[in-house]
């Protein structure tokens, strides 16, 4: 999360992302992924900047912020809401559920004092649910930022959470 959240920052970010991925329609989602990675979410202002660069019709359509917004709200890896410093992803799919996911979910919510989709007031944590992450062999699975934890139990949670500043 290094890009600047200033008007110029957004402009620069949009320019770089478009330089890297191009302006053809198949570049739209890669561009959004790039912005999301940079800011941790997609600020609406960044959408406007991207749109400005794409103001020639893409394919047979003119790309408006609305379309970018629509994409960003469809794909779960893209967020339109600002998130906390650490994103806790909890896998709520069946394989993790039957191996004890439910108890972990209860404990997670209690220990973070958050429900699904919420960010803590101090901006430290965001708690997000996700569908299967393809690590079901070691369910229940919790991912914090880039680190994946398998075979999580409610008892292990405090130690895991304490690793994050």
């Amino acid at each position: 999360m290094s890009a600047h959240t200033t008007d110029n920052g957004y402009k620069e970010m949009a320019r770089l992302a478009i330089e890297k991925h191009g302006t053809s329609p198949d570049a739209l989602i890669p561009i959004l992924l790039e912005v999301n990675q940079e800011y941790g979410y997609i600020p609406v202002k960044a959408l406007t900047e991207i749109k400005k660069h794409l103001n020639a019709p893409v394919g047979d359509r003119l790309i408006q912020e609305g379309h970018l917004f629509s994409l960003a709200s469809f794909y779960h890896m893209l967020s339109l809401k600002a998130r906390g410093r650490h994103i806790v992803l909890f896998c709520e799919s069946a394989p993790c559920h039957v191996t004890g996911g439910r108890a972990v979910w209860q404990a997670l919510q209690e220990q973070l004092s958050l429900s699904a989709g919420e960010t803590s007031p101090d901006g430290k944590w965001s708690l997000v649910t996700t569908s299967c992450l393809g690590a079901c062999g070691v369910g229940p699975v919790v991912v914090i930022d880039e680190d994946m934890y398998g075979n999580v139990t409610p008892e292990r949670l405090p130690e895991i959470l304490s690793r994050y500043e």
């Binding site: 959408l47 406007t48 408006q64 912020e65 609305g66 379309h67 917004f69 629509s70 469809f74």
Partner: peptide, 18 residues
């Protein structure tokens, strides 16, 4: 291009712009 669909599944809705 004012309207578009946002979100998905049971939460899908029609929104204006961003």
């Amino acid at each position: 291009f004012v309207w578009s669909l946002a979100a998905r599944g049971a939460h899908t809705q029609v929104v204006a712009g961003a």
